[in-house]
Computed example of a mutant assay.
Amino acid sequence: MTLKKARKFCLISAVVLLGYFSFLHMKIQESIHKPIADDAGYLIILGARVKGSVPSLSLQYRIDKAAEYLMANTHTVVIVSGGKGPGEDISEAKAMQQGLIEQGIEEGRIIMEDKSTTTYENIVFSKELLPDPTATGVIVSNDYHIYRAVEMAKKEGLDIKGVPAKTPKVALVKSYLREYLAITKYYLKEYIGW
């Protein structure tokens, strides 16, 4: 391949990649601007990193957004979903439970799912604990994550909508780039079978 052809190939590849990432970004933005259902039968909070026993900023934003929804929708039960990973002294579910109780959510409304380690497991394991899997639900995660989480939940037969929490500014670029790759992996698995 000549240098001229190599440059042309690199340029075309860059344009295609940029177009693809723009498409993914558009899908993410569409998902976080959809109307949020009131009085959902259940709410699932997806886990994120805990530093020792303290929620990371990403997880704290999820806890805060869920508490806000639960205070406004007092009949909604909540499933806190996330296991215990490396560097975590307690499970992500336990950290979320404690955070919600601190914000005035009654412990009796909180269902613990503390075995999952991935978004897919969050959804599948949480589904098993739902009081009524046919009810309309909502799922809370950081905004960049809502599109993929809702798509996965719908694939599992859940009638669910997203409630986006903000993403920490310091992690914005890294989070979106990682999510573009995670969505691509999801597409390859679901639609191509890789």
Rank of each mutant, 00 (worst) to 15 (best):
A6G: 08
A6K: 15
G108A: 02
S13K: 01
I28K: 02
E151F: 10
K161L: 13
Q60M: 05
K27S: 01
V50A: 05
K8G: 11
I36M: 10
T76Y: 14
V140W: 08
A171N: 14
L43G: 00
S116H: 00
M96A: 09
Y20G: 04
A182D: 08
Y187C: 11
V50N: 09
Y69R: 11
E128G: 01
L57C: 00
G52N: 10
A6E: 12
G47V: 07
I45W: 04
V54H: 03
Y186P: 03
E107M: 09
T118F: 01
V138K: 08
D114V: 10
Q97I: 07
G19M: 11
Y176I: 14
E102I: 06
T134H: 08
R62S: 10
E128S: 09
V163H: 03
G99E: 11
S175P: 10
L130T: 12
D39G: 11
P86L: 11
Y147P: 04
G99F: 03
Y120G: 02
K5G: 01
V80Y: 03
T117A: 09
I139E: 10
F9Q: 12
L59P: 07
A93I: 08
P164H: 02
L17V: 11
V16F: 06
G47Y: 02
Y120T: 12
K174I: 01
R7C: 08
R148Y: 01
T117Q: 12
A67N: 00
I28Y: 02
H145S: 09
G82C: 04
V170P: 00
S126L: 08
G193R: 02
Q98D: 15
I28S: 00
Y187P: 03
I192F: 14
H145T: 12
F9M: 09
M96C: 10
F23P: 00
A165G: 09
L172C: 08
E107F: 00
K127M: 07
L177F: 11
G99R: 02
T74P: 08
I44D: 09
I101T: 13
E92V: 03
V50R: 04
T2E: 14
H25G: 00
S91R: 11
P55E: 01
K169Q: 13
G41E: 10
P133G: 05
I111A: 03
T136D: 14
D159N: 12
K4F: 15
T134Q: 14
S53T: 10
A37Y: 12
L57W: 03
A93P: 09
T119H: 00
V138N: 12
